[in-house]
């Protein structure tokens, strides 16, 4: 083997680290206004409601719902300062215009592509031919992930692109996430986040609601509220009018 080939293979497979793709939950702050004062006030309120949830969690600024004028006037640097004061960690912007792309670069924020729905609107792609739609559907028939063992404190399970079925309990300190629905045939004592890519129709079902946190499409409810809301009942959890609803599952006798 030549020297340069040896070097190349050493670099191909580095010893000092391993590169892996990862998918991690982040909080999206979808801006509806560029008014920093208003944002700060409302954010402070959210953070004091459930400080543990926000503690040092990575944050993405979604700016695609802002008008062009708002995008031009948004003080991104000021927003970062506000968030850091509240223990949040600004990490990326999504859907930025040219000025905000520039600003993001300057502030060391990553840049994420626009969310899918918006993108097709903007790029005005031709609708795919019917056969293509059918093919895409069978191919993407959502994979269901089935877990048969308890999910323990400190563990995290993510069902990407589909539903998650857990045939045991989810412990306090554990976290389950799914792009689709989450079914737990056991107690939910940890955190469950359904519809993490934004599916507002996703639901969580569990045999006993003892959760630390539940979320559907980014709307969440924390422990203190959950305790007074069908605690230890078999329930379903879903969004109605943009808010988390918890209702008991129908009983059989």
């Amino acid at each position: 083997m030549s020297k340069s080939a040896q070097r190349a293979s050493a670099v191909d497979r580095p010893e000092s680290f391993q590169l892996k793709g990862g998918l991690f939950p982040m909080t999206l702050l979808e801006l509806k206004s560029a008014d920093l004062k208003a944002i700060k006030l409302e954010l402070m309120e959210k953070v004091t409601q459930s400080p543990a949830f926000f503690q040092r969690s990575p944050l993405v600024f979604g700016v695609e719902q802002l008008t062009d004028a708002e995008q031009e006037s948004l003080d991104l640097e000021g927003l970062c300062v506000i968030c850091r004061e509240l223990t949040l960690l600004p990490t990326a912007t999504r859907g930025a215009n040219a000025r905000l792309l520039n600003e993001s670069g300057r502030l060391g924020l990553a840049i994420l592509p626009r969310s899918k729905g918006k993108q097709s609107e903007l790029t005005a792609e031709a609708p795919p031919a019917p056969e293509a739609v059918a093919a895409a559907k069978t191919e993407a028939s959502p994979p269901t992930r089935i877990i048969t063992t308890p999910i323990r404190s400190g563990q995290q399970i993510y069902a990407r692109g589909g539903d998650l079925v857990v045939m045991a309990s989810v412990s306090a300190g554990a976290e389950v996430l799914a792009d689709g629905n989450i079914h737990i045939y056991g107690a939910l004592r940890g955190r469950a986040l359904a519809g993490v890519q934004g599916d507002e129709n996703a639901r969580i079902f569990c045999s006993s609601q003892e959760a630390e946190l539940v979320a559907v499409a980014g709307q969440f409810m924390v422990d203190e509220v959950l305790r007074t809301n069908h605690w230890k009942d078999a329930v379903q959890i879903y969004l109605a009018g943009g808010r988390i609803q918890i209702t008991p599952l129908p009983k059989h006798n």
Binding site: P150, I151, R152, S153, G154, A172, G173
Partner: peptide, 13 residues
């Protein structure tokens, strides 16, 4: 009990 739960998770992963 919480710590034991965590250790069980580590054992099985």
């Amino acid at each position: 009990v919480r710590d034991s739960d965590r250790i069980l998770g580590i054992l099985q992963s």
